[in-house]
Design a protein around this nucleic acid. Structure first.
Lengths: 186, 186
DNA sequence: CGACTCATGTAACGAGTTACATGATTGC
DNA sequence: GCAATCATGTAACTCGTTACATGAGTCG
């Protein structure tokens, strides 16, 4: 339900083609809202039908033709409507937690390996986000408006990865201690 | 992708009907893996077809007949296989972050209201989780095996809600400060 | 008498994933 | 010659949400 709106936000920041949007969703915006190019093309078509965005075909030499999308008046209105809309936090979906909960129904060591792998992935992502923070927002106390909002979203990513990382460490520590205590199995 | 496995974990802890499973998914397991009764009935049917679970029809007096589901040998094997399987952390999907990112394209105050609402929801959930922690795991350092794993999953919920709550507070503080600095608009 | 619990489902739809398909240009 | 980048899509499928449907028993 929010891919349309994520696209509106991104297109409002800067107009572009489906392909460009797909690349933005591989970075920046995509760090907190993932979308594949198939989804994006499909959704853009629907948004044109709804009148939220306008398309302009651009012929190019040496490159395939492209379609540039721009947010129209109806799209801006819809975006304003959605921004003010009340909604509830999405329920959690944490499959690693399901694995931890079921660990003793299988090979506990293998589950710990999965936790360790996730731990490393979160650490990698955290490094990426911290590097972006350092590079793009060296002085966060002076930000305002759109730049501030971009920074705050990055902060969500940083906090989220940090939290996941710390939880993985807590799990690994507790499960290792439990293994030592019950050497065979129990 | 993982609803089957969440059901296997839950049924392995204790056999039961689709209805009972739906109620478990409203609490405990459902705190980190949501599922509606429609999804559960549909998935149980598929799992019977796959031979992962066995059904036993039970006729009752004064109540509708029910079907009790039990994990079979193939289900246990599948669960072990899945527990050892490598997978990547699911990409984030944070629609509140999308709203914050787009805040200046609409009514900033309304977006702040949404952040404040989410903040309160997260605080409520955190209270629930902390109460469960106090009640069910008063002495966490002595846990082992399945009880330990249940506790660790609850910890994931606590950390997640705490993290979301703190981020909401950070956003509200920064956006309030920004409003004071730029009284009209900018 | 109305609301709630127990207990099961179907149907339609929307959203996301995976695989397939095409085709020119640029750089190694 | 091969891989990558630019640029667009279709098709089939799974997963999740919403709405609808039924029906007995219990509690206030």
């Amino acid at each position: 339900m929010a891919l349309e709106h994520a696209i509106l936000v991104s297109l409002q920041e800067k107009s572009g083609t489906g392909y460009e949007l797909a690349r933005r969703f591989d970075k920046s915006i995509g760090y907190f809202w993932a979308a594949s190019h198939q989804q994006i093309y499909r959704t853009l078509k629907r948004m044109v039908d709804l009148g939220w965005v306008d398309v302009q075909a651009v012929t190019q030499q040496g490159r395939p033709d492209k379609k540039v999308y721009r947010v129209g008046a109806a799209g801006r209105a819809e975006l304003r409507r959605w921004l003010a809309e009340e909604d509830e936090p999405a329920p959690l979906r944490n499959d690693l937690a399901v694995k931890v909960r079921g660990a003793s129904m299988g090979d506990v060591d293998k589950v710990m390996e999965q936790v360790a792998r996730h731990r490393d992935r979160h650490a990698e992502r955290l490094d990426v986000y911290l590097a972006i923070e350092k590079r793009d927002f060296p002085d966060p106390s002076n930000l305002s408006g759109q730049r501030l909002h971009q920074y705050l979203v990055l902060r969500a990513g940083i906090r989220s990865e940090q939290g996941s990382l710390e939880w993985c460490d807590e799990v690994l520590a507790a499960m290792r201690k439990d293994c030592e205590r019950t050497p065979g199995d129990e």
